[in-house]
């Protein structure tokens, strides 16, 4: 990591990462087709988010789906943990709640592979600035 010495340095990093993040969210042509965010705050982990995250990473690879699985903080839906947010290229993110490995399996098979939704979607109820 090289040091950030000026506002310009910061802006450069920002531009590069922003581009990367945009790619992973919007582009249909990018290498990465699917992005899965796993809510890994205490509440999520306590209800099994780690297992779900590991399952997602392993299974997506086994099933030959190029995807980016990342951890994130609390989405606020503690009642429905573990929660994951799946973003398919060019689509709005969808949050699934009460995800265990069998639900995760369904999400991969149905939503990620075929665009079918599965029960247990958590409607997003906030805007971030």
């Amino acid at each position: 990591m090289s040091k950030i010495k000026s506002l310009d340095d910061l802006r450069k990093i920002k531009a590069i990462v922003e581009e990367k993040m945009k790619l992973r969210e919007n582009s249909a042509n990018s290498e990465i087709h699917v992005q899965v965010k796993v809510a890994m705050a205490t509440c999520g982990i306590a209800s099994g988010a780690k297992t779900v995250m590991e399952f997602m990473i392993e299974e997506l690879e086994k099933r030959n789906i190029t995807a980016l699985v990342i951890q994130t903080g609390c989405m606020g839906y503690c009642f429905a943990e573990p929660t994951i947010e799946v973003t398919m290229p060019g689509k709005d993110p969808i949050v699934f709640g009460y995800v265990d490995t069998s639900k995760a399996d369904q999400i991969i098979e149905k939503y990620i592979k075929r665009g079918e939704l599965v029960d247990g979607i958590i409607p997003k109820n906030y805007e971030s600035i």
Binding site: K37, A39, A41, Q71, T72, G73, C74, G76, E85, S128
Partner: peptide, 10 residues
């Protein structure tokens, strides 16, 4: 909470 659940905190 703007970034919670949006970015990878690590």
């Amino acid at each position: 909470l703007r970034n919670c659940g949006f970015i990878n905190p690590e």
